[in-house]
Each structure stands twice: as C-alpha cells, then as structure tokens.
Amino acid sequence: MSESIQLEYTVPGNDFTRAGEASADLKSTLKRLGLPAAEVRRIAIALYEGEINLAIHAGGGQIRVTVDDHQVEMILTDQGPGIPDIPKAMEEGYSTASAQVRSLGFGAGMGLPNMKRYTDEFDIQSTVGVGTTITMRVKIG
C-alpha cells in the first residue's frame, strides 16, 4: 500500500460482550489487506488484551491504528485512574481486577505482559488521575 491506513475504535467501559469488537475488526481488515497470518495473530491478541484492559480498568477508551508498508501501530488512550506502579503492573500474575471480572476468566495478570510479548515495540505512559496511553508496534515483513 502506498499510503497509510488509519482506523479508529471506541471501547465502552465495563462491557465485556462488546470488548473484542475492535480487535476482531482489525484482524479481518489486516487479513483482507494481505498481511502475514502470524503477524495478524500477534496484532489481534495484543489489541484484544488492550481492549479488555480499557473495559475493565479505565471505563473505556480510544484506539487508533495506523497501518503502513512496514508496521502496524496501535495507540490506546484512556482517561481512567492511571497506573501507580507500572513495573508492578507489568509483572506476570499481578492483577487489580475485581472478583466479577475474574469470574469471567479475566484478571490473570497477563494482559500487559501479553501485549509486550506479542509486539515488537511496547510503551506505556500513565499518570494517576489523568489516564494511560499505550503504544504498540508490530513490524511487517
């Protein structure tokens, strides 16, 4: 593709039936664009974890995806409570999810680690009381 493609999604807060719509849509869009299946899978998984986090922790948020010849960039922003201790939040198994969320199978404390694991670049900026921005990039080819 000669020009980059921009996609935007809004994730509602606390709606676990709808969380996943953005990643499902992105997955089918990237497949249609002919991106390699392995990269599409990594991107879909990373974005789904991000969507779930937005729904669980932030009361919802925004996702902006930019697709070009070399990479897929996903920027997730929210105006949620922020993350007081980012290194702690990045530890596998650390979770602040509620019992209700855990009963759905979430809250294993693997969301952020999975996002980092499945992307080539992962950055998280957060201010308590202001919100969080996560930037993820997956290289293509």
Partner: peptide
C-alpha cells in the same frame, strides 16, 4: 469450562 462470549473471542483471535 468457560462458556462465555469472551472464550469465543479469544479462540477466534488466537486461531
């Protein structure tokens, strides 16, 4: 044993 919509989403996204 998780038979909810999120299981389906994960199965689909993870192929």
């Amino acid at each position: 044993v998780m038979g909810n919509v999120n299981t389906v989403a994960v199965a689909s996204l993870a192929d």
